[in-house]
């Protein structure tokens, strides 16, 4: 099936639901960032420069808990290491000869959701194009930055009079992680997830949340390497 080449405009349309979903999450990040003591400029800088939702929320926790800069950077980088797999998987689906001349720019927008949407378009018969990738990546990035700025302008106390809304926004983070976990869940990954969860809980209860996060990531990754080595 050939549904034609993905254009810039078609990429924008495909990205619309992602942008609509990103805005409130980014708004919650902006509110949380200013509530945690960051300035509006600092909150916006995190969204412009890092552009990875879950790790930005974690960055807030690490910054406010006083974690050392190398520990914080290592934790956040380890968390985003999964993105290494997205580009090769996308180019493999796009087929031989797919353009990558401007990948240095459009690859920046290759988040979890954009990656999933791009694969979905190819599965539906659209031919990969770099213009389409620019369209697909631009709208979510704009929504993420504008949502952060709106949340930062609203301020950390903006939701004090809206406890139900504040509660819902507070649950966005575990909901996002659970949804991401479901999106990558396969039978071979179950031992990795179980070991990571157990190590995280044990480390958090025994020492601190930072120890639990680092311990969970390392133990889970080692479980994955060792399990496959035995297989």
């Amino acid at each position: 099936m050939d549904a034609g080449q993905e254009t810039f405009a078609a990429g924008l349309v495909t990205a619309l639901p992602i942008g609509l979903g990103y805005f409130p999450i980014a708004f919650a990040f902006g509110v949380a960032a200013t509530g945690a003591g960051l300035s509006g400029w600092e909150a916006a800088a995190l969204s412009v420069i890092i552009y990875a939702g879950a790790s930005q929320f974690l960055a807030l926790a690490l910054l406010t808990s006083g974690a050392a800069l190398p520990v914080a950077a290592f934790t956040l980088i380890a968390m985003n290491l999964r993105h290494v797999l997205y580009g090769p998987a996308l180019m493999k689906a796009a087929g031989a000869g797919a353009g990558k001349r401007h990948a240095w720019a459009w690859a920046w927008g290759l988040t979890d959701e954009v990656f999933g949407a791009a694969l979905g378009e190819i599965a539906r018969g659209k031919r990969f194009s770099e213009a389409g990738m620019f369209g697909l990546g631009l709208l979510p990035y704009a929504a993420w930055i504008s949502g952060t700025v709106a949340g930062a302008l609203a301020g950390g106390g903006a939701l004090a009079g809206w406890p139900v809304l504040e509660a819902g926004l507070g649950f966005l983070l575990p909901a996002l992680f659970l949804a991401l976990l479901l999106s990558i869940l396969t039978r071979p990954q179950v031992p990795v997830i179980v070991v990571a969860g157990l190590a995280c809980v044990a480390g958090t209860l025994a020492v601190s949340s930072t120890t639990g996060i680092l311990g969970g990531m390392v133990a889970g990754a080692l479980a994955g390497v060792m399990r496959r080595a035995r297989a």
Binding site: L81, R82, L85, F177, L181, V192, C200, V201, A221, R228
Partner: peptide, 23 residues
């Protein structure tokens, strides 16, 4: 390749548990 395949799920699982613990 095995490490890369495992570190993403491990990171996401860890962060889910870490964010759910306060609740």
């Amino acid at each position: 390749a095995r490490f890369l395949a495992a570190v993403g799920p491990a990171a996401i699982a860890t962060l889910f548990f870490a964010s759910a613990l306060p609740f």
